[in-house]
Design a protein around this nucleic acid. Structure first.
Lengths: 357, 357
DNA sequence: TTGTAGGCGTTATCAC
DNA sequence: GTGATAACGCCTACAA
């Protein structure tokens, strides 16, 4: 099929310039460095140097090569480049299977977006490996040298044993990873525990004394830590920490958890481990005839669009999600370059007081 | 740096098998086909055939090669494969810059997820090109043969002239693309206009007579079509179609639009072009003392988690978002294989009646 | 059925 | 400064 065409490439272009019968940008085959070099009257080596901005190339040569590049619309072939450089310039965002639906979670979307934004200024490309930890095939893909680094977005316990298998590329996690691995463990997170505690103290300071919580999935560090923070604040205030229900970070689970709470001991406040659950909880409370914040104050976590658009608007812990993604990418890039990066980076949070408390 | 090591590969491995001093899976360098072939006592060609499941290979050879593969933990190098095959096995999901924030839109998240799920069963890899239509660089990347196909997720008018520049790879759009291009235009969508009309008819059937709308961005086909559908239904019922406010699909814009509506002629129902805006509108209405649905009925579009978790729950048009992503990917794969696919595919929708109407 | 050999487009190591 | 010339790891006629 493409036999005739292949004459374009290697030995044939001996006497270069006049040899291009077809127009500028036709369907043919994308221009190669060879083409560019010929057009500029230099060798591939020199053309390559120009493309890669290496110095020690005569200014006028740089110019003519660049001209050729522009005229031809040359763009480097990544595959060839990867092969020669022995690095792929690809980083994968791994979204574990158990987290698939959480892709709809505004928090994760923001993290990915932040990472993507940062990477778009580098020459790394972002690969979406969503729910791909199950199959041997895709795990092999990730560990098999087809990727220069990994960004892992929410590792439930027992999710991906990626790292166990002598993984050779750097990884940065969003949030403290479920399993601990000494040297290898790079992650960026917020101080979930103290942020949660602060949020709950806000409630105690306002005179709430029977404070329930809707905790997040307990196989996630964030879920456990926010629960601990809630306990810390209650202990400080000398309050009891019964009234715990567990959700899974979705609005529905928040609703269900609130309904369960309503069947138990009375409470005058709820701390939910994220805004989506807080939102779901408010629905349930209102439906049950409780007004927010008068009967029950509600505080969430994330500061996502749910918290801002809900009625009442939700008091919440602001988490710099996009920034987290950005920093993750930044650290990963450093690691891939052989540099070092802080193993753990905690970004600041702050409480946003709105109507629900 | 890697000079000494490179002796492993080409001419040196003359007498193969015994030449491997280092252990199974050490840091060294990933095993290549060459390694596998040597270990299995066959040629690279044969090993390659086995890897690619070509027939005409003796069963026992297949077996031994597979054994070698497993023992060595061999995984094909994508870069080399792409180079040789002249196809990248990469498809990019393009999320135009103006849509960046919409990444947080549950609808798009679901579409991407559906596409990702489908692709994970193929050997295509998914690349996230988010907000990357601005820079020359990344546009070149997409059009420069580094990708086998494009999935475009929400093309505002004037967004990416990608397609103008003699784009050589197939593209499938989510939703009718803003600009029309004959042969090239593949997209999967729903019948926004009639779905919207049906939703509004639901309101007229329930006796609502002063029906407002919060339309979506008018530089998006979906935004325009849903507005038209609203008009259609009103015309059918002999009602007037004043009371239009435009939003941008975010909850905030829904709130703002509702507030503007409240300053105008009285209305007893609102059709919002998506659930997030419907949600924002309900907040504004409640805040203004209007009860939903008694004073004002509200209908949305999408059937996302907002519609299900809101209070009251929102009547809405169900859109098969994940399925849309799946079909997009399916069609793209067909096109990339040189097959054909329907240029326009409309998936069915249906009305989900909940509390808000 | 299996092996040989050349090519895919770049980079990098040498000499010149 | 610049140009040959091997790799890089895999695929694929063509031969055997």
């Amino acid at each position: 099929m493409s036999v005739r065409e292949s004459a374009l490439t290697s030995g044939d272009t001996g006497s270069a310039v006049a040899k291009k019968p077809s127009g500028e940008q036709t369907a043919g085959r994308p221009p190669t460095l060879e083409t560019v070099a010929a057009r500029a009257g230099v060798s591939r080596a020199t053309a390559s140097r120009v493309v890669n901005h290496l110095d020690r190339v005569a200014p006028h040569v740089v110019e003519s090569v660049n001209a050729a590049i522009k005229e031809l619309g040359y763009v480097p072939n990544q595959a060839a480049r990867s092969l020669a450089r022995r690095r792929t310039a690809v980083v994968a965002v791994v979204i574990p299977e158990s987290t698939e639906r959480l892709f709809a979670d505004p928090f994760f979307a923001a993290v990915v977006q932040g990472a993507a934004a940062y990477l778009s200024d580098t020459d790394y490309t972002l690969n979406l490996a969503i729910g791909s930890n199950k199959s041997e095939k895709s795990r092999r893909y990730l560990t098999g040298g087809n990727v220069d680094g990994l960004l892992v977005v929410s590792q439930h316990e027992g999710d991906l044993p990626l790292t166990q298998l002598g993984l050779s590329v750097p990884i940065v996690f969003a949030g403290r990873p479920a399993v601990d691995f000494g040297e290898q463990g790079h992650y960026v997170d917020v101080d979930n525990r103290s942020a949660a505690a602060d949020a709950v103290r806000h409630l105690t300071h306002r005179g709430r004394t029977r404070i329930a919580t809707i905790a997040g999935a307990q196989d996630l560090a964030a879920g456990r830590q926010r629960l601990s923070g809630w306990r810390d604040a209650l202990a400080d205030a000398g309050l009891t920490d019964e009234r715990v229900e567990i959700g899974d970070f979705t609005p529905e689970s928040g609703t269900a958890a609130a309904e369960r709470l309503l069947t138990g001991p009375v409470f005058d406040a709820v701390f939910a481990a994220n805004d989506q659950m807080a939102f779901g909880a408010i629905s349930a409370l209102s439906r049950a005839g409780r007004t927010v914040p008068d009967d029950v104050a509600v505080v969430g976590f994330d500061d996502d669009q749910f918290s801002r658009a809900a009625r009442p608007t939700i008091t919440t812990v602001h988490q710099p999600a996009q920034e987290m993604g950005r920093v993750m990418a930044e650290h990963l890039v450093a690691l891939m370059a052989g540099e070092t990066a802080d193993q753990v980076t905690l970004l600041p949070t702050y409480l946003v007081v709105r109507e629900s408390s």
